[in-house]
C-alpha cells in the first residue's frame, strides 16, 4: 500500500542561513494513521509541515504524498490533503457559510457539493445557529472549528493540523479531538503537531520527535514509551530533548 507520506533524506536550509533547519529527515506515514510530530520551539516542525504542504520548496531529498513527488505534482498533490494552520486563516468579515463557499470552490468542489458539505460541517461543528454571523465576532473555540471545517470541506485523504486546539476551552477541544478521531475512522490520515502533549497522547498512535534539525525518535507511541521506560509522552519528550530553554531566534 502506498504510504500517505514518504520522506527520504530531506535536508533544508533557509536562504541566508548557514545552519540546516532540517537535516537528513526520513519519515513514513501510512494511510489511516494518526501521526504526531513534536519538538521544542525552533526544532523544524513547522518547516517540515510547510515542505509537505508545498509552501516551501526543497532541493535536497524526496517528499512524496500518496506516491507523488510534491514539487513535481503541486496541483494534484494539493487536492489530496487539507491543512489546518495555527493562525485563523479565513475571512473575519464573512460568515462561516461564506468562508466555506469560497474555500470550497478553491478546493475544487462544485456549487452543489459545497452546499451539501456546508450543511454537514455546520452540524458536525455545532455552528448552525451562527451560520450567518461574521466569523470575526466568534469565540476562540468557534473560530478553531471554522478553521477545521474549511480544511476538510473537500474530504481530503490526508489532513495536516498545526496546533488545531491552541487557545480554546475544554469543550471545544474535546469536540475537535472527537471529530478528528471520527474523521480518522473514516480513513483520513492525520498529521498533527502541538505542544499539548496530553492531547497528543489521546489522539496519536504514532509519533516522531524532532530536535536540532533531526528526528531523534519515531515509531508507535506505546513502543516508544516502553522502550524509554516512561508512562507519559511529556516525560519521554523531556528525556529526549532535555530541559534547557528553547526560545528560538530573537
Amino acid at each position: 500500500m502506498t504510504p500517505a507520506i514518504q520522506i527520504e533524506n530531506l535536508s533544508f536550509t533557509y536562504k541566508g542561513n548557514t545552519q540546516k533547519t532540517l537535516d537528513q529527515i526520513h519519515l513514513n506515514v501510512s494511510e489511516g494513521e494518526r501521526y504526531g510530530i513534536f519538538g521544542p520551539n525552533g526544532a523544524g516542525k513547522t518547516t517540515l509541515i510547510n515542505i509537505m504542504t508545498g509552501l516551501l520548496s526543497y532541493t535536497g531529498g524526496s517528499v512524496k504524498i500518496f506516491g507523488k513527488e510534491v514539487t513535481a505534482n503541486r496541483k494534484s498533490v494539493k487536492s489530496l490533503f487539507g491543512f489546518v494552520p495555527q493562525d485563523f486563516s479565513f475571512y473575519n468579515e464573512l460568515t462561516p457559510v461564506e468562508n466555506m463557499e469560497f474555500f470550497g470552490a478553491w478546493s475544487g468542489l462544485d456549487k452543489k457539493k459545497i452546499g451539501q458539505k456546508i450543511n454537514e460541517l455546520l452540524e458536525m461543528m455545532h455552528l448552525q445557529d451562527v451560520r450567518n454571523k461574521p466569523v470575526g465576532k466568534f469565540s476562540g473555540g468557534m473560530k478553531r472549528r471554522v478553521n477545521l471545517a474549511i480544511a476538510v470541506i473537500h474530504e481530503p485523504r490526508l489532513l495536516f493540523l498545526d496546533e488545531p486546539t491552541v487557545g480554546v476551552d475544554v469543550q471545544s477541544r474535546h469536540a475537535i479531538i472527537e471529530y478528528l478521531k471520527k474523521l480518522n475512522e473514516k480513513g483520513t490520515t492525520l498529521v498533527y503537531t502541538s505542544h499539548q502533549l496530553n492531547e497528543a497522547e489521546d489522539l496519536c498512535n504514532k509519533i516522531a520527535l524532532i530536535d536540532q534539525s533531526k528526528i531523534i525518535g519515531s515509531g508507535p507511541l506505546v513502543e516508544l514509551l516502553k522502550r524509554h521506560h516512561k508512562y507519559k509522552l511529556e516525560d519521554l519528550f523531556l528525556e529526549l530533548t532535555g530541559r534547557a530553554y528553547r526560545d528560538g531566534g530573537v
Binding site: K78, S79, P85
Partner: peptide
Amino acid sequence: REKLNGSFIRLRTLPTHFGI
C-alpha cells in the same frame, strides 16, 4: 490583511492558482 491573517497561506495550499 489577507497576508497577515494567513488566508494567503491557506490559499497556497489549495489546488487553485494564486493568480486567480
